[in-house]
């Protein structure tokens, strides 16, 4: 399973806002327990949606500007962007089927 590429405050504009594909960003932190459950599921979805959706992760311990801008409170939080617009927010652990459903809804 491929690690998700990192996106940072500095690269968010290019990697997410200007991405031709819809993008899901996994906001996580190293010492967040449920993040360790969510990230492997997101990595699996990354393979499933390869070529259709971009997948990134952002460490909120190292990047404060973008989490602040999007009002992140609890982590993990998954934000879905399309054409530079926020299309969906998923907070906390969810099973893969639920994440897939929420992702599909946001991409319509």
């Amino acid at each position: 399973m491929a690690d998700l590429p990192d996106v940072t405050d500095a690269t968010f504009e290019a990697d997410v806002m200007n991405n031709e594909l819809p993008v899901l960003v996994d906001f996580w932190a190293p010492w967040c327990g449920p993040c360790r459950m969510v990230t492997p599921i997101v990595e699996e979805l990354g393979e499933e949606y390869a070529g259709r959706v971009g997948f990134y992760k952002m460490n909120t311990d190292e990047n404060a500007a973008i989490p602040t801008q999007y009002g992140i409170r609890s982590i993990p939080s998954l934000l879905i962007f399309k054409g530079g617009e926020l299309k969906g927010t998923i907070v906390g652990f969810r099973p893969k089927s639920d994440l897939r459903k929420r992702l599909d809804e946001a991409l319509v």
């Binding site: 010492w31 327990g33 992140i72 609890s74």
Partner: peptide, 19 residues
């Protein structure tokens, strides 16, 4: 450790609506 906490700006302020 399962929350995002914003940082203070240069004036010691932080945004509303967050922790």
């Amino acid at each position: 450790p399962c929350n995002f906490y914003p940082e203070k700006d240069a004036d010691g302020n932080w945004p509303d609506g967050l922790y």
